[in-house]
């Protein structure tokens, strides 16, 4: 996904066993922090609202 321009850090992969609760918690915090730092996603986001009419 990074190849097509999704920002590095927005998509995470990791391998965590169902018994590794602590690891899971740490990873979740890490992902949330990394994604929050990047701000809202702008790519691959669909906006179906009609364009707002020019104020006039």
């Amino acid at each position: 996904m990074e190849y097509v321009g999704i920002e590095p850090g927005r998509l995470h992969f990791s391998w965590i066993s169902s018994s590794e609760a602590g690891e899971f918690q740490n990873k979740a915090t890490e992902v949330v922090e990394a994604v929050r730092a990047l701000g809202p996603a702008k790519r691959l986001v669909k906006d179906i609202r009609p364009e707002e009419a020019e104020a006039g």
């Binding site: 990074e2 190849y3 097509v4 321009g5 999704i6 590095p8």
Partner: peptide, 16 residues
């Protein structure tokens, strides 16, 4: 192969 690898994320997205 993979012609966009050298580009920045912004440029890659534009090419896509």
């Amino acid at each position: 192969a993979a012609p966009w690898e050298k580009l920045s994320p912004e440029e890659r997205w534009e090419r896509l």
